[in-house]
């Protein structure tokens, strides 16, 4: 973990502070009284059954969803869709989505330099140089002039990560970024995220890849029905989940071996023979 940059952080203010966050869609309570502090350089993995509110939670941190209660403070500044400087605050939060969300009408390089140039008014040459460096790090420098349609799913996601990194965000949000990928491409994307963790990037990661979660997380949050059911170190959580819900959820990722036996004549034929 990196050293605190400010010498005067006497009170140790966390990078991200969320207090009593509440999110409602009509009658349905999606997130109920969520509080969380994320320190500089911390990697938080959020898991839970689908519909538990974990994706909505990430979207709230980027003010893509209006919230009905509580506060989100990033660097002490409130994050809210109504804030005047919301575009500037969002620059500090990088987000990568599940669907490949690259801009289809721009090349890989143009995708990456668009926001640094337009939102941060940085010089084109500087942005290009940095984009190329980042692309090299994820092994995609040779694709810089390709259009998104010419890339595989895993390559698109790596570009999407680079695009977010080019803004120098203080925190990165990953929303099930490998869920839509072919299995052989999952690894290349997760390796990039592991690499970021090693460099001390602050990250919040929603994922269904349990072994990855275990490897990357400083802290695991288990969400269910809009609340944080459990929170703890990965080894602790994965080997000894405390709540019954978490135990049930983790069981869905393991399989019991099936005993094979030859069918007898009066038994129905197996459903799949292979």
């Amino acid at each position: 973990m990196s050293e605190p940059t400010n010498a005067n952080t006497a009170a140790f203010e966390p990078l991200l502070r969320i207090e009593h966050l509440r999110k409602v869609y009509g009658e349905h309570v999606v997130l109920d009284d969520i509080s969380l502090e994320v320190a500089q350089g911390e990697v938080i993995v959020i898991i839970g059954p689908s519909g538990c509110g974990k994706s909505t939670f990430l979207r709230c941190i980027n003010a893509l969803e209006p919230i009905q209660g509580g506060t989100i403070l990033l660097d002490g500044q409130p994050v809210s869709a109504e804030a005047k400087n919301i575009a500037q605050i969002r620059q500090k939060v990088g987000m990568v989505f599940q669907s490949y969300d690259l801009f289809p009408h721009k090349t890989v390089l143009e995708n990456i330099i668009l926001a640094p140039m337009k939102a941060q008014k940085r010089k084109r040459e500087e942005c290009v140089a940095e984009a190329e460096k980042l692309l090299e790090r994820v092994g995609l420098l040779d694709k810089k002039d390709a259009f998104p349609r010419q890339l595989s799913g895993g390559q698109k996601q790596r570009v999407a990560i680079v695009r977010a990194l080019a803004m120098h965000p203080e925190v990165m949000l990953f929303d099930e970024v490998t869920a839509a990928l072919d299995p052989e491409m999952v690894r290349e994307v997760l390796d990039v995220i592991l690499d970021l963790a090693e460099q001390g990037k602050t990250m919040l990661i929603v994922t269904h890849e349990m072994s990855f979660a275990r490897a990357v997380a400083d802290r695991v949050l288990f969400f269910d029905e809009g609340v944080i059911m459990e929170s703890g170190a990965p080894e602790e959580f994965f080997s000894h989940p405390r709540t019954e819900r978490a135990q049930r959820f983790l069981r869905t990722f393991t399989f019991d071996a099936v005993k094979h036996h030859a069918p007898t004549s009066d038994e129905p034929a197996p459903l799949f023979d292979d």
Partner: peptide
Amino acid sequence: DVQRESALSLGLTRLQ
């Protein structure tokens, strides 16, 4: 919507 949201999350303004 994802196109819009991912552009917003990069910190671009609505107009941009």
